[in-house]
Amino acid sequence: MGFIFWILAVILVIAGIFQLFKGETLWGIVLIIVGLAVGPGGYSIFD
C-alpha cells in the first residue's frame, strides 16, 4: 500500500512541476504540497 502512495505522490509532484513551468504557479504549488502530504517519505498525512 505504501508503494501506491509513493507512486501517487511522485505523479502529483511531477504534475506540480509541469504546472509551474506552464505559468500556473498556485496550482503547481498546491499539487506539490498535496504530493508531499500523500507520500510515505518525509511528511505524510497517513503516518
Rank of each mutant, 00 (worst) to 15 (best):
L8C: 13
F46W: 08
I4K: 11
I32G: 06
I11K: 05
M1Q: 12
I17N: 04
V30N: 00
G41V: 14
A37G: 04
G35S: 07
V13F: 07
V38T: 09
I14L: 15
G23Q: 06
V38D: 01
L20N: 07
G35C: 05
I32F: 06
V10C: 09
V13T: 05
L26G: 11
I4A: 09
G23F: 10
Y43N: 02
I11E: 00
K22D: 04
S44A: 10
L20C: 05
G41R: 08
F21K: 14
I45V: 15
I4R: 11
G39F: 11
G39M: 07
G23H: 05
V30L: 14
I17S: 05
K22Y: 03
F18Q: 07
A15H: 04
S44P: 06
V34T: 13
W27G: 08
I45T: 08
I7R: 08
G16P: 13
S44I: 02
M1R: 13
V10P: 00
Y43M: 12
W6Q: 04
L31H: 10
A15K: 11
V10I: 15
G28E: 03
I7H: 10
F5W: 06
V34G: 02
T25C: 00
A15P: 01
L26T: 15
E24D: 13
G41Q: 10
F21D: 02
I11A: 14
P40F: 00
D47M: 08
F21Q: 07
I17R: 09
G16A: 10
Y43D: 00
G16C: 13
L36N: 05
I45A: 09
V38K: 01
W27R: 15
S44L: 03
I33R: 01
F3P: 01
V38C: 03
F46C: 01
L20V: 13
V13Y: 02
L12T: 03
F3I: 12
A9G: 15
W6N: 02
I29A: 14
I14D: 01
I29R: 07
W27T: 13
K22V: 09
V13D: 00
F5D: 02
V34F: 14
V10R: 10
I17F: 14
V34Q: 01
L8S: 12
Y43T: 08
K22T: 07
V38Y: 06
G2V: 06
E24M: 12
P40I: 02
V13K: 14
L8W: 10
K22W: 06
M1G: 11
G35R: 07
I7W: 09
G16K: 15
G23Y: 10
K22E: 06
F5R: 15
G2K: 05
W6E: 01
F46M: 02
I45L: 10
G35P: 11
L31I: 08
G35Y: 09
G35K: 09
I45Q: 02
K22S: 12
G23L: 11
F18A: 07
D47P: 08
G42K: 09
L36A: 09
I11L: 14
P40D: 00
G42H: 05
I32Q: 08
V13P: 01
A37E: 00
A37S: 13
F3E: 05
Y43W: 13
W27V: 12
